[in-house]
């Protein structure tokens, strides 16, 4: 028996929206640790890894490991029937061929259940070793989305160059070229800033990401890599899951684009770099 109840159903809805256009069919692995997925897009260029830890659910029960093959478009259709503030419960029998999604509104006076047929999916699972990356960039997820969107109107690929002080995004196309440089925010700016208000005297608040890039760079070695913007734009559909995005880059390795899911886990996207011929 597998049963997982998430109070904030909007999280599950957002997760599905962020991956359903990249991957068609995928196996969800339900274990005592949590609800996880690893799947590649059809061209085997990018990969999504999702982890929702059991401890992040309001209720979680998994008697034995269960693999649930689902069509993500169909799963998304069902989850769209849940309101954002609904509680969502997923249920499946160990040997069953359906998964049940149960939605409950906050007043608990409307309860819906949807059954979706599971499918047998042959998937290729990739072994991704733990790697020390040469460059780690943490920045506002909104800004990253904006940059990927803006550059894709000029070119098809983006070259990301990380140095100790900045991350530079470059593209070129038939109409011209574009460079966007985000400077690493100095330590003082990254931390809380003090604001004086007449009523409260001195008050501390966090700098809003909309007021700047809030770029944090951890660098062992400067890295420059080129990626297809189409995939990065697809990853950015996860933007609403987290205020920040983390990019991890190393020479001649796929980039890892991670969005943390508060108290629950993460969604990570891997994208193979392009190489010059």
């Amino acid at each position: 028996m597998f049963e997982a109840r998430i109070l904030q159903g909007s999280i599950l809805k957002k997760v599905l929206e962020s991956i359903k256009d990249l991957v068609t069919d995928a196996n969800f692995e339900c274990t005592a640790n949590g609800f996880a997925l690893q799947a590649m897009d059809s061209s085997h260029v990018s990969l999504v890894a999702l982890m929702l830890r059991s401890t992040g659910f309001d209720h979680y029960r998994c008697d034995r490991d269960v693999t649930m093959g689902m069509n993500l478009l169909n799963m998304s259709k069902m989850l769209k029937c849940a309101d954002n503030d609904d509680t969502i419960t997923m249920k499946a029998d160990d040997a069953g061929d359906v998964v049940t999604f149960m939605f409950e509104n906050p007043k608990a006076d409307k309860i819906s259940d949807f059954q979706m047929k599971l499918m047998d999916i042959d998937t290729e699972h990739l072994g991704i070793p733990d790697t020390e990356y040469e460059a780690t960039v943490k920045m506002s997820s909104n800004e990253f989305q904006r940059i990927c969107r803006d550059l894709s109107s000029i070119g098809d690929t983006v070259t990301i160059a990380v140095t100790k002080d900045s991350v530079k995004f470059t593209t070129s196309g038939d109409i011209g070229e574009a460079n966007i440089t985000c400077r690493r925010t100095s330590d003082g700016d990254m931390k809380e800033e003090k604001v004086k208000t007449e009523e409260d005297g001195e008050k501390v608040h966090n700098t809003k990401s909309s007021e700047g890039q809030n770029v944090d760079i951890d660098l062992q070695e400067p890295v420059t890599l080129t990626f297809a913007l189409r995939y990065l734009n697809s990853f950015c559909k996860a933007t609403s899951l987290c205020e920040n995005v983390r990019l991890q880059l190393s020479k001649e390795l796929p980039v890892v684009v991670q969005y943390l899911i508060e108290d629950m886990g993460y969604v990570r996207f891997y994208l193979a770099p392009k190489i010059e011929e």
Partner: peptide, 14 residues
């Protein structure tokens, strides 16, 4: 021109 790599070139199949 840039050529697109495949993920299997970096990670092993399990």
């Amino acid at each position: 021109t840039a050529v697109q790599n495949n993920l299997a070139e970096f990670y092993s199949l399990m």
